[in-house]
Amino acid sequence: MTATSPAADPSPLPAPAGRAWLGPLMVLTGGAALGFAPIGLRLGLDELGAQAIAFWRYLFAIPILFPLVLLAQRRLPARPNAAIILAGIFFTFDMALWHWALTLTSVSNATFIVNLGNAGVGLAAWLFLKERPGMTWFWAAGLAILGAAALSLGGPGLSGGALKGDLLAFIAAGFIAGYMLFSKLARRSLGGIEAMFWLSVVEAAVALPIVFIAGENLFPASASGFLMPLLLTLIVQVAGQGLIITGLGSTNTAVAGILVLAQPVVAAAIAWHAFAEPLTAIQAAGAGVILIAVWLSQQGKPRPGRSGLVTVT
């Protein structure tokens, strides 16, 4: 590895105690913003395929994030590290499978299943990052999974096509867990905005061949077809994912995984009105349980592991 300058010192300092809430709040808000992703995808399918929408969402983010890096860092983006490249690859494959799943199953089903990766990322962080979650997290994770299951399985019966979509979303869950882990590692030497810039560059590069493999048209039939990808760029890619990446720098990975589960609640609530996918009583109860899990995840103190890596700025 090459030596780093003092300005890029990968040894982080703990977040000020008075601002300990800021990182988790950013992750929670970012997760809520991600709830608009499946909605925008459904609305944009008249002009573009699911994979093409993802590609343009990533590509449009690059010219938006680059000047933000210059403004915030007063310099060009730092060189990407291996972790941010892997995070981008994992996220792109996650989104490719999830977007495919959203065309085959309901918004709430696909969003729930892919977020199992977020709920379980705490265990992976324990193994690979030595971030040991407190006992409260295990209760929160259990409630989150129970609530998410009710949100998904409490709806109408599934057809064969929906089952295929659910299986694709389950595979995507594994990729989202890898994305969270590598994003956490990347933030040790990259600022939040420049991490998002490099993520978008990697994601656009990986998503382009996926569009052609899927046999989709790269360009919409009319200029108005770019509107929904642009909105997804602003709300989901720049605001949503950007808040999560930035907040991860000062949030325990296990806790962040629970906080991001605000996404299926928001997605299901919007889909209720936008796509006539009403929530049953069981699904509404599941959404409530998820919100309780989000609150509970913030009540415990994660314990440091052997390496003491719990909070990273």
Rank of each mutant, 00 (worst) to 15 (best):
A33V: 10
G35R: 13
G35M: 07
A37M: 10
L41G: 15
L41M: 15
L43I: 01
L43S: 04
G44N: 07
L45P: 12
L45I: 05
D46A: 14
E47K: 11
E47M: 08
L48P: 12
G49R: 06
A50L: 05
Q51Y: 00
A52T: 08
I53T: 03
F55V: 00
F55C: 01
R57K: 02
Y58P: 00
L59Y: 05
A61E: 06
P63I: 02
L65S: 02
L65A: 04
L65E: 01
F66L: 15
P67S: 04
P67G: 05
L68N: 03
V69P: 05
V69W: 05
L70R: 13
L70I: 04
L71W: 11
L71R: 10
R74G: 03
R74I: 05
A78S: 07
A78H: 07
P80C: 04
N81Y: 08
N81C: 04
A82L: 09
A83F: 07
I84W: 02
L86S: 13
G88P: 07
G88H: 08
I89G: 09
F90H: 06
T92E: 09
D94C: 05
D94V: 00
D94L: 02
M95D: 13
L97M: 11
W98S: 10
W100L: 13
L102Y: 11
L104S: 14
V107L: 14
S108R: 11
N109I: 00
T111C: 05
T111Q: 13
I113N: 05
V114C: 06
N115W: 04
L116M: 14
L116D: 07
A119T: 05
A119W: 02
V121D: 06
V121H: 11
L123W: 14
A125M: 03
W126G: 01
L127P: 05
F128I: 14
E131D: 03
E131V: 09
R132T: 06
G134E: 12
M135G: 07
W139T: 15
A140I: 03
G142R: 08
L143D: 02
A144I: 00
A144F: 02
I145P: 00
L146R: 10
L146T: 14
G147S: 04
A149L: 06
A150T: 00
L151A: 10
L151G: 11
L151W: 10
S152G: 09
L153M: 13
L153K: 10
S159E: 11
G160V: 06
A162W: 01
L163C: 10
L163T: 15
K164R: 15
G165I: 00
